[in-house]
Amino acid sequence: MSITIIYTIATLSIIGIFAAVVLYFVSRKFYVYEDPRIDEVEGQLPAANCGGCGYAGCRAFAEACVKASGLDDLNCPVGGNDTMNTVAKILGMESVKKDLRTAFIRCNGTCDHRPKTSQYDGASTCAIAASVYSGESDCQWGCLGYGDCFDSCDFDAIELRSDMGVPKIIDDKCVACGACVDACPKNLIELRKQSPRNRKVVVACMNKDKGGVARKACAVACIGCTKCEKECKFDAITIENNLAFIDADKCKLCRKCVPVCPTGSIIEENFPPRKIKVEEKSELQNS
């Protein structure tokens, strides 16, 4: 019995040592030199492999950083400026400060705003629904609500809200990797510059139809009336194809455009509640 055990241990050990020797020589023979800084940079990256930087994964991005002569065009949206600073330090380069961004779904056509005019009954993805027809409502531009963005998000930053028909981005979790931007067949998602406390004033609509048509399809559609454009003191609002757009880089978050919008298509988020002005108060009292 004990002899069997000894033999077994001895045989296995010999095989093990032999294999180790072979592996040692093979690894010496086929050694490939790799810049050690690639590993170092990769160690600093978030390892999300989301592709938000435009490279196939964190390793590919690290390689690109090491090869690059400057970090101007390279940015890891997930790690943000902190990560890029560390990377810059490792590589001895200047880091370039990039704006933080957050995704925003430019459609507010929830079920109560946008009446359904037909019922879709097919494979439950936006991409297929969009290839079949324009959508369940009369608005051909708006959100279909089957959640291709939700499926594409690796960071749980999208709340599906299937009862409301339009998903919502959870700002704190969004890393602006851009996966949802590519996933949306209606091109509704925009990566906007992040403002302090995630405050934002956005036209939540992509409807380029004429005012009447847009309004009929959806209660909160932008009708291109240009009131907000006139109200804005900072030239942040432009109107093109019957649709207003607020440039996040120019917007000073004064919120003056919000109340002038006749359809309520401009929405403000993460602001403290407005103080009700005197004249409005009196109106309220009268009504």
Binding site: G122, A123, T125, A127, I128, S131, V132
Partner: peptide, 11 residues
Amino acid sequence: PLLDYIRFGKG
């Protein structure tokens, strides 16, 4: 929905 997906893939 075989054809739904195949049509999508074909596109």
